[in-house]
Computed example of a mutant assay.
Amino acid sequence: MNQGKYVFSQLTNFLPQRIFDRITSKYLGNKSVKHFTCWNQLLCMIFGQLSARKSLRDLMTIIQTHQSKSYHLGFGKSVTRSNLSKANEKRNFKIFEEFANHLIAIT
């Protein structure tokens, strides 16, 4: 049984979530969203990059294999391929662009 935090959770603890939430509210990213927030989307996409996933289907396969750990990884409960693809399609990309620019500026 795991006694501490997962490595992915330790890595994402370095991300400033308050700043991301401020940027998200600026662009109304979580407007009329109940479960799969922009933060959950960001964590899923970071997980895909770090695990070298080649497609959305490949990413969803690996997330579904870790379904019991998804809460502890920060993905939330409602991660499905349709939720993730709709979020990638409809949410404003400027949220993630501005957050990336902020991270680059503070390093």
Rank of each mutant, 00 (worst) to 15 (best):
L42W: 02
L42D: 01
L43Y: 12
L43W: 08
L43R: 13
M45H: 00
I46D: 01
F47G: 02
F47T: 00
G48M: 09
Q49L: 11
Q49K: 08
Q49A: 10
S51M: 12
S51Q: 08
S51P: 02
S51W: 09
R53G: 04
K54Y: 01
K54N: 11
K54T: 14
K54M: 11
S55H: 02
L56P: 01
L56D: 06
R57N: 14
R57S: 07
R57V: 12
D58A: 12
D58Y: 00
D58L: 00
L59F: 01
L59M: 09
M60G: 03
M60H: 00
M60V: 05
M60C: 07
M60Q: 01
M60Y: 01
M60S: 05
T61E: 02
I62P: 05
I63G: 09
I63W: 06
I63E: 11
Q64A: 10
Q64E: 09
T65H: 13
H66L: 10
H66K: 04
H66S: 10
Q67Y: 13
Q67R: 14
Q67I: 09
S68G: 06
S68P: 04
S68N: 07
S68R: 04
S68A: 13
S68Y: 03
K69I: 06
K69F: 11
K69W: 07
K69Y: 12
K69M: 09
S70E: 13
S70H: 15
S70V: 00
S70K: 14
Y71D: 13
H72Q: 14
H72A: 12
H72C: 08
G74A: 14
G74E: 02
G74V: 10
G74K: 11
G74H: 11
F75A: 10
F75L: 03
F75I: 10
G76R: 10
G76Y: 09
G76T: 10
K77P: 12
K77N: 14
K77W: 08
K77Y: 08
S78Q: 14
S78E: 13
S78A: 04
